[in-house]
Design a protein around this nucleic acid. Structure first.
Lengths: 131, 131
DNA sequence: GACATAAGTCTCTAGGTGAGACCTATACTC
DNA sequence: GAGTATAGGTCTCACCTAGAGACTTATGTC
């Protein structure tokens, strides 16, 4: 796993690495954005409506919620369905692609959960050494 | 793995989820930042000096390179060593903690590599449906 | 003496983010 | 029938931060 990623990176470099056109960056720039991961985690338990997502993520503005959902929809990780109720309601749910992203995402979150104490300790040391 | 992460999230919510104080966010906000992951990948092959990193990441400004390295050092993922040359040189390298982060990071990059075609197709569809 | 290198810092500007008002239509309450 | 709530957004404004690039201090090279 590590090797295949490494060799892919080497290959890109050999091809004349163009940072503006790096595919990994294009994907990670979206997925690593502040809100998108949190939205994906919220959708893991099932489809949710726009305002329900807003309530689940209390500190996201509607503006950023809309924008993040559009990004995720555009990349094919989230599906948007409009229901002909009055007023119309909209449900967001994970696609298969979106669901497949949860595995590496949880790997990161697990890492964060495991290493939080070490990181906190490192921060304290760093702050202390600064005076 | 998935279950443990999921139950942790449920636990946090039960404890009265405070988004400003969510540990996962605190960690991921740094690690998912645009430059930090790229720096970690560059350091995977061994220690590098400040300007060498700048050359490896052609589109990072010195300002952001300094700041990202400080963040990584503060969190204990990167070690900073000053050598008493003239002029003084500085080497950055991964700590064990930093190296341990490469595994989930590569899992994400592998996912991105694998699913790039699907994502590109989804983007094309989305753009087409917009007119 | 002019120029390069080391590892940054400083300033300025442009762009992105967050907060929150506003919009259209329906339904419920009094 | 006036007021209020809900739905899913859009719009505007102000601030903050990221990016670009000049500047710093000290040594070594041509």
């Amino acid at each position: 796993m590590r090797d295949s990623a490494q060799s892919r990176i080497e290959q890109w470099k050999a091809d004349g690495f163009d940072p503006k056109n790096c595919p990994v960056r294009q994907v990670l720039d979206h997925l690593a954005a502040k809100w998108t991961t949190l939205i994906l985690l919220e959708l893991e338990n099932g489809a949710q409506r726009f305002n329900a997502l807003g309530r689940a993520l209390p500190d996201i503005s509607k503006r950023m919620l809309t924008q993040s959902l559009r990004d995720l929809e555009r990349d094919g990780l989230v599906r948007r369905e409009v229901f002909d109720t009055k007023p119309p309601s909209v449900a967001y749910s994970l696609t298969d692609l979106g669901r497949s992203f949860l595995m590496p995402l949880h790997a990161m979150i697990d890492w964060a959960g495991h290493n939080m104490p070490d990181i906190a300790a490192a921060r304290d040391r760093f702050t202390a050494s600064e005076g």
